[in-house]
């Protein structure tokens, strides 16, 4: 009789169950109709099964998004868990689609599923990558733009994980400011 170690068949559970969403910009449909839930997972193995199966962000056409959110939170400002929140925003230039986009997005996913922000990870709602001709964007969304301690911790760890140089800064913006902005830029509530 062969003894099989549990290590070889038990999947590694995640702290949270996550949902991966896909947005494709079809101007004949409403924003919400363009948003589709791809799949949910709650183990490390199922995360990789999904990630290995889908297109890299850099292969998506302009106007598409991937969003990874905790189960029960929809990837939109209006969701109860997002509406008082904001995001750490990484803006990429055109060269970075080839150099950094896929690497940064995978690192973002690993931060989320691995709970990289310790107890402040509870403040994380999800993350979004936007593929856009004028420049791609990646962001981690958190629940409460007043929670300075959590937001700055998350921002510092995130910046380090992405390997962004000390001398460069990233900014955190509230969704309410993003939604009501008049120009092309939103003011930063926090910077690290």
């Amino acid at each position: 009789q062969e003894i099989v170690s549990p290590e070889s068949y038990i999947k590694h559970p995640l702290q949270n169950k996550w949902s991966l969403w896909f947005f494709k910009n079809d101007k004949t449909k409403t924003w919400q109709a363009n948003l589709r839930l791809i799949s949910k997972f709650d183990t490390v193995e199922d995360f990789w099964a999904l990630y290995n199966h889908i297109q890299l962000s850099s292969n998506l056409i302009s106007g598409c998004d991937y969003s990874l959110f905790k189960d029960g939170i929809e990837p939109m400002w209006e969701d109860e868990r997002n509406k008082r929140g904001g995001r750490w925003l990484i803006t990429l230039n055109k060269q970075q689609r080839r150099q950094d986009l896929d690497r940064f997005w995978l690192e973002t996913l690993l931060c989320l599923v691995g709970e990289a922000f310790d107890d402040y990870s509870d403040e994380v709602c999800g993350a979004v990558v936007n593929i856009r001709t004028k420049g791609d964007k990646i962001a981690i969304w958190t629940a409460d733009f007043d929670n300075r301690e959590a937001i700055t911790h998350i921002g510092r760890v995130y910046k380090e994980r992405l390997g962004i140089p000390m001398k460069m800064t990233i900014g955190y913006q509230s969704h309410s400011d993003t939604a009501t902005k008049s120009g092309s830029t939103t003011k930063n509530k926090f910077v690290v």
């Binding site: 590694h12 490390v44 990789w48 990630y51 290995n52 690993l110 691995g114 709970e115 994980r161």
Partner: peptide, 18 residues
């Protein structure tokens, strides 16, 4: 309770395992 934390090295190793 305890939080289930995985570092990037562990997560990346899981990618190639069967």
């Amino acid at each position: 309770g305890t939080r289930i934390i995985y570092d990037r090295k562990f997560l990346l190793e899981c990618r190639s395992s069967p």
